[in-house]
């Protein structure tokens, strides 16, 4: 078969390869899929584990400091919804995620769903048929803080990625997802 060259996902593949090289460890297929998918990971976890649950650890409104403003491309002082959730199967935590959503870019209905606990962002986008695209910014290793150590009962390294959901050419959401490096290694 002739090779019509496809390099559209090269950036993602390179990010995965670079991380494996830097960390000195090969990652499993499931870990790679979770870190690179341009869709929602909720559906993937659901397929892998059956019914999973979402628990909102915290959600509040606040003003963007310089770092937040840069992540979602707003001005310092703009209002942002900060949300912190954990997806789990029974008693086992699976993935921790934080999101920043600039309120100026949210419709009233999205803002209201963000306020209601335990609705995944992918589901909110689907419910309101929000046309969007996703861009993975970084795939990396991060040391867990005390909160993550406590939630996952481990002090091992975490695999992480951060990405943005873009709507109307503006960042609607910035999301970071993390899980321990020993998770999802079976396949």
């Amino acid at each position: 078969m002739p090779n019509d060259k496809n390099e559209a996902n090269k950036r993602l593949i390179e990010k995965m390869n670079d991380l494996e090289k830097d960390y000195g460890q090969k990652f499993s297929n499931t870990q790679k899929i979770l870190l690179t998918t341009d869709g929602s990971i909720t559906a993937i976890l659901d397929v892998l584990y059956g019914k999973i649950s979402l628990f909102t650890l915290d959600q509040h409104f606040g003003t963007a400091d310089a770092d937040h403003a840069k992540l979602v491309n707003v001005n310092e002082g703009d209002e942002i919804n900060f949300r912190e959730v954990i997806m789990h199967k029974g008693a086992k935590p699976l993935i921790y995620a934080i999101s920043h959503v600039p309120l100026g870019r949210c419709s009233e209905e999205i803002c209201s769903d963000l306020l209601r606990a335990d609705i995944p962002i992918g589901r909110i986008l689907k419910n309101y048929k929000i046309e969007s695209r996703r861009e993975v910014n970084n795939i990396f290793i991060e040391k867990p803080d005390e909160k993550l150590q406590d939630l996952f009962k481990t002090d091992e390294d975490f695999l992480a990625r951060d990405y943005v959901i873009i709507n109307n050419d503006e960042i609607l959401m910035w999301i970071k997802e993390m899980f321990p490096v020993s998770y999802f290694t079976e396949i």
Binding site: N9, T30, T37, I44
Partner: peptide, 25 residues
């Protein structure tokens, strides 16, 4: 599980195939 993932992802399977197999053509 992989077949189920390929069935349930939103959008084309190309990204997953690229990541699992290296760039597919």
């Amino acid at each position: 599980k992989l077949q189920k993932i390929l069935l349930s992802i939103q959008g084309p399977v190309t990204t997953i195939l690229d990541v699992l197999h290296g760039n597919v053509n």
